[in-house]
Design a protein around this nucleic acid. Structure first.
Lengths: 340, 340
DNA sequence: TTGTAGGCGTTATCAT
DNA sequence: ATGATAACGCCTACAA
């Protein structure tokens, strides 16, 4: 059962390949109903499917999009990937998932490869890194894509101007801080992701802003930095607990950090939310299954991924150029208490 | 900055495109050191990269592999995807992640698309479904691929003969049951994934076998079925607790189910492991961050994914035909107690 | 050691 | 309404 081409179809239907192409692509060019039916029938019989390599060689774009993730085993990117791949599938297009393992060099390399593949569009899953050399190189790549009509959409701030579908990270940092303050907390610690990522930076900025707004003192000792992992959250929480500070509430830059912190608190004999309230950002599916269930901000990762695909597939330049911010809302569960 | 082709390179270097191709692909065909250097230099200057669509049209395979997952937001598939994509990247090839959302029709559709893309190999991430129509269709696709020299590797049992990299699911089901029995448990419940998936079926078989081996009675009421989600585990645990049965230990077909069960037990005021011991299969990264940390079997998903890619990329037919079983080992943590 | 030419499977332009 | 033909960019006999 070898591969069959248009030629096979044409031959069997007794028409030219041109005609086959025409019925297949539903072009304006007129084709008699009779031949159309005949060709369709043969296509069915032979189970013919056009070869995509040939198509994209001829046209100059592909029916492929790419999603760049930092760690696809992290449910954060997983949820995003689900939104992207499932939406792409609706358009009949396939998705390259490019996992960088948080290595900027890998990311640049991926862009070279994607360029070679002439992918139709690229979705940047992770937030930008504030490293000058990396940013310059990345921007170069972005421009090359754009100049050739490929579309790029980011799902997190990159530190330079481009099209995006995001949440308001700073605003969300404010939101969670405000939530604790509104419940009587005045000593609030913070576990942040890496400060060279814009996402983590912006969220922490929101926290700082919120304290200032409420005339609460800001203290560097109340902040611990880590990567975005469970382990990182666990370690950061321990660092905070080892410092000579007191806090009744803690904001975590994302759910993973909160999960790690939860374990640290438990080990130290601190009850959540009785002794310390925990709030974070993410609302990943398992936030419902921590002990206690986590109060956290829902980030519509699936919808963001889906939207990015829609933008890439849309011919509407206006929509493309629109920068989109998704609203965030707190999912109230049981990790925050009211103190009086 | 338009796309540049071999022709551009050839022209600028003052040679034919054949020569360019030869230096690029390092063929046996002799090329003088001088021209080689000259061509290389121009390639650098122009930053030329071969067009992959053209390459794969000419050759009859691609530098693309595909991974079929059921739910990419589930860390189980996430970890697998990480192994696959990162290993693929080492070979300089890209990975389509095809998420079926557990819909068999989607899976079949994906195979059509992958066929059109002439992907070099396909990795079946999820276990087979025991549905006759689906199995027949799938096998048809598999044969088409094979007949055309594409490679297919499965990471879970499919219910028919094919190349695979797996764990021994039945053996692992036995392993966890044995573990509880060895610690004095004689009333052991079981939460299983869907019975029409071979993976879940085999694991449960292992449990049954193990009971028989130890002359322990088997009781249908001790089994609850669900999907493989947190929610499913939560619900299944509640169902078991509502029945008129007693158990001191419970085996969960996978980590997600265990996480859900943990929450159900907590809500019902049952302490783990004091009142009920929990063991499962998976050892996903967050098994360390449940309360209490989960005793569970490590399934080397990353390594399995990596191995599958190596097999696909290998020219060694022998290795290809070898069916590979990875060993599983229990990660002992704190969710199982010894009862006397 | 280098180059010429044909073809991979499409689509699009131009005739008929 | 239909068809011949030239690309798209690359690889590879076959010639020179």
């Amino acid at each position: 059962m070898a591969r069959i081409s248009m030629e096979d179809v044409a031959e069997r239907a007794g028409v030219s390949i041109t005609t086959v192409s025409r019925v297949l692509n539903n072009t304006n060019h007129p084709v008699s109903e009779k031949t159309r039916k005949k060709v369709m029938k043969v296509i069915q019989e032979l189970d013919y499917k056009p070869d995509i390599s040939a198509q994209s060689l001829r046209q100059s774009f592909n029916n492929i999009i790419a999603l760049i993730t930092r760690d696809i085993s992290d449910p954060y990117f997983g949820e995003m990937a689900r939104g992207v791949t499932e939406t792409a599938n609706k358009y009949g297009i396939l998705t390259f998932v490019c996992n960088t393992g948080r290595n900027p060099e890998n990311e640049i390399q991926y862009h070279e490869l994607l360029w070679q593949h002439r992918v139709r569009g690229i979705i940047l899953g992770g937030g930008g890194l504030n490293l000058e050399a990396y940013k310059i190189k990345l921007q170069e790549q972005m421009n090359r894509y754009k100049d050739n009509g490929h579309k790029i959409v980011s799902l997190a701030p990159q530190g330079f101007d481009m099209d995006y579908v995001m949440i308001d990270n700073r605003g969300t940092g404010e939101l969670i801080t405000d939530y604790l303050i509104a419940r009587g907390h005045t000593s609030i610690a913070y576990i942040s992701g890496p400060q060279n990522t814009y996402t983590a930076f912006d969220r922490l900025e929101g926290y700082k802003l919120c304290l200032k707004k409420h005339n609460l003192p800001y203290d560097d000792l109340m902040i611990a930095y880590s990567d975005n992992s469970w382990k990182g959250g666990y370690e950061a929480a321990n660092i905070l607990l080892d410092r000579s500070i007191k806090f009744t509430g803690i904001c975590c830059g994302n759910d993973n950090l909160a999960v790690g912190a939860l374990r640290a608190f438990k080990e130290r004999g601190l009850a959540v939310p009785e002794d310390v309230s925990v709030i974070s950002i993410g609302d990943l599916p398992n936030a419902n299954y921590t002990a206690p269930p986590l109060t956290t901000v829902r980030v519509p990762l699936y919808e963001m991924g889906a939207k990015a695909v829609n933008i890439i597939m849309s011919d509407d330049t206006q929509e493309y150029n629109a920068n989109i911010i998704f609203k965030t809302v707190i999912s109230e569960r049981q990790s925050v208490s009211n103190i009086k």
